[in-house]
């Protein structure tokens, strides 16, 4: 299943990542880390909240795969993991692509089905569409149908 470098995220990973991004403090932390790695104290400085509260936010981001933490000397440093953001962005894009390509195909199918006599043999007749005049084509971006009929006007 996982064939590409950006493997599809599981639902749980998506939920975690979107949940993590749904908070303004956590987004601000990510924006801060996009400038470079930072220690917890540096990360916490701009926010009017306790360090444990910030630590909790960091844990949520880490669980979501959006950041990683490592030790440098005596400090715990936070590091942005851009790959997860990329995966989320790809996910949104692929969702749109899925529907847009499906709808293009659906348009073609519906058009074909509404040309009289073009239903596949044995297919149940869509009663209502049979009774109606063939639909108008939209615009000129379509291939002509299998027959010359159904052009409306």
């Amino acid at each position: 299943m996982r064939t590409t470098a950006t493997a599809p995220l599981t639902e749980i990973q998506l939920d975690r990542a979107f949940g993590a991004l749904a908070d303004p403090t956590r987004r601000a932390i990510l924006a801060r880390l996009s400038e470079g790695d930072a220690g917890v104290l540096d990360v916490a400085r701009p926010f009017p909240m306790s360090q444990p509260a910030i630590t909790k936010h960091l844990r949520v981001l880490e669980d979501a795969g959006l950041i990683s933490r490592h030790r440098r000397a005596r400090h715990r440093m936070c590091h942005l993991e851009p790959q997860r953001l990329k995966q989320l962005s790809d996910w949104v894009g692929s969702y749109r692509e899925f529907w847009e390509t499906s709808f293009e195909r659906l348009d073609e199918l519906l058009e074909e089905l509404q040309v009289p006599g073009s239903l596949s043999p044995g297919a149940p007749a869509p009663a209502s569409s049979r009774q109606q005049e063939p639909r108008h084509r939209q615009g000129s971006n379509r291939q002509p149908g299998k027959t010359g009929e159904g052009e409306g006007t």
């Binding site: 709808f103 348009d107 509404q114 869509p126 209502s128 569409s129 639909r135």
Partner: peptide
């Protein structure tokens, strides 16, 4: 999404495997 067909036909293409 707008589709250029009546609901009855859209229903059919959304519910039948063919």
């Amino acid at each position: 999404r707008f589709l250029n067909a009546p609901p009855e036909l859209v229903w059919q293409v959304c519910t039948e495997c063919e």
